[in-house]
Simulated scan of single mutants.
Amino acid sequence: MMGTFLFIGGPEIFIILLIVVMFFGADKIPEIARGLGKGMSQIKNATNDIKKEINESAKNQGIDTDLASDINKEISEVKDNIDDLTGPIKRNR
């Protein structure tokens, strides 16, 4: 049993993949996956940059770092969710 991915079950994923193959062709799927991977890595890099900026500005302004750590925790959760989404797309090297 395939389980659910983004609240979508196995049959729905199969139909979506079939439609993608019909529209783009099987030879375009690796390109699309590469593009999605690059986009996800850019999002990860952006969240890391935001996290770094929050930490630096909090230290420079003397802001209580508990607030900054809460924000960092939220950013980390978003990053983990992105990792969960990209898990099936990543290739093992």
Rank of each mutant, 00 (worst) to 15 (best):
F5H: 06
I15R: 10
E56M: 13
M2R: 10
A46H: 08
G10C: 06
G10S: 12
I43S: 11
L18S: 11
I32F: 02
M1E: 08
A68S: 02
I63A: 13
P30S: 02
E56P: 05
M2G: 03
R34Q: 14
E12G: 06
A58D: 06
D84P: 04
T4L: 07
G37I: 06
F7N: 09
F5Y: 00
E56G: 06
K73I: 10
G37W: 08
D64M: 07
M22T: 14
P30C: 01
L67Y: 15
D70P: 05
G37Y: 12
K90N: 04
G9N: 01
K51Y: 07
P30R: 02
N72W: 13
D64H: 13
A26G: 06
M40N: 06
I75Y: 00
P30L: 00
M1P: 03
I43G: 03
P11T: 00
F7K: 11
V21D: 12
E74A: 15
I43M: 15
D70V: 10
S76T: 15
T86A: 12
N92C: 05
I63P: 05
I82V: 03
A46P: 04
G9Y: 00
P88A: 00
L18W: 15
F24L: 14
K44L: 14
I43K: 12
I71K: 01
R34G: 11
D70C: 04
S57C: 11
L6Y: 01
E12T: 13
A68Q: 01
P30K: 03
G35H: 03
N60P: 04
I13Y: 05
E56V: 12
A58Y: 07
I13W: 04
N81R: 01
R91F: 13
A58P: 05
I54N: 03
A58L: 04
V21M: 15
I19W: 06
A58E: 06
T86L: 07
D70Q: 13
V20E: 14
T4K: 07
M2H: 09
N45L: 10
S41M: 10
M40K: 07
D27R: 09
M40T: 07
